Computed example of a mutant assay.
Amino acid sequence: MTKTYAALLRGINVSGHKKVPMAELRTLIEGLGHGGVRTYLQSGNAVFTAAGDDEDSLAAGLRTAVEEHFGFAADVLVRDGAYLRAVADACPFPAAGLAPKQLHVTYFSAPVDADRFAAVDRPAYAPEDFGLGDRALYLYAPDGLGRSRLAERLARPGVTRGLVATTRNWNTVTRLVEMTRD
């Protein structure tokens, strides 16, 4: 039985560094034996079908293929469509009433708990705020991610130590949900 997955590549095609043309990425994923490969934007979002159900193995295979083909390492997270839908459905903020640039999801490689974020003085960053999921963090940044002091604080190594983390804006979150519907 095949499942539909999204691959989230971290840190590619940013300011001309770690260039990964999407047509080449699609070919690379197809070369791994996956089907129905589609990409979204230039920021490292790919949807594909695969027979396996081990997200970590799928991510490791793609990470190795990217490094061998493009000559640099790129972190990769793979999540199935059901998980992406669950993350979107669990958003603690009123997504329908916000501009997509105001809401972001950071996907993590492992579950996160509130203790990891206990040192963040949330009132000091108001009106910005965040909420936690099991392997996701929701960020409300009314002035956008680029101007968010809270996003900068949450990205510090002490908070994200030992995790792969990659962030997507709400438009991308909802588009990947649509693209991974089985």
Rank of each mutant, 00 (worst) to 15 (best):
H34V: 00
A50M: 00
G52N: 01
G11N: 05
I12T: 04
T39S: 09
E55V: 06
G52S: 07
P142N: 06
G144I: 08
T64H: 00
M1R: 05
Q42H: 05
I12D: 03
L84G: 08
S43A: 07
T2V: 15
L137T: 14
A114S: 10
R168W: 05
V173M: 14
N169Q: 12
S15G: 13
G97Q: 08
E30A: 13
D129M: 08
T39K: 00
S148I: 14
Y83M: 05
G71Y: 06
A23P: 08
D53I: 00
V120N: 13
E55L: 01
L139D: 07
P111L: 06
S43G: 03
R181P: 13
V177N: 07
V78T: 01
R26Y: 05
S148W: 01
M1S: 14
V159F: 15
R38F: 05
S43K: 04
A119M: 13
T160G: 12
S15E: 09
A99S: 10
G35Y: 01
Q102C: 15
P127N: 12
A50K: 00
D53R: 00
A141R: 04
K19H: 13
L98H: 03
L25C: 07
I29V: 15
D80Q: 11
Y40F: 08
A151M: 06
D56Y: 00
G52L: 05
S15T: 12
D121P: 03
V177P: 12
P142E: 09
R161N: 15
L154W: 05
G133L: 11
G144D: 14
Q102L: 13
T166S: 07
A86W: 02
A51L: 05
A73K: 10
R168G: 08
A95H: 05
P127K: 15
G36T: 07
N13K: 04
Q42G: 02
R156E: 12
V120W: 11
F93A: 12
A124Q: 10
E152A: 11
A51I: 05
E67F: 01
F117H: 08
D115N: 12
K18E: 09
F130H: 12
L41W: 02
Y138R: 06
M179H: 02
G97T: 13
K3P: 02
A23D: 10
G35D: 04
R175V: 11
S148D: 15
L8D: 02
L139H: 06
D115S: 08
H34D: 02
T4A: 11
V87I: 11
Y138M: 14
M179E: 01
L176A: 08
N13L: 15
A141P: 04
V173N: 08
T160V: 10
T106F: 02
A165F: 04
T174D: 06
L132A: 09
G158C: 10
N13W: 02
A165D: 07
A124T: 14
F72Y: 12
N171Q: 11
T64E: 14
L9D: 03
A126D: 09
A141I: 04
D113P: 03
L62S: 06
I29N: 03
L145H: 05
S15K: 11
R156Q: 14
Y125V: 10
L137N: 13
V159R: 07
E178I: 14
H34Y: 07
T49P: 00
L9H: 14
L84S: 13
A151P: 09
S148F: 07
K19M: 15
H69Y: 03
T160H: 12
V37M: 00
A165S: 11
R161A: 10
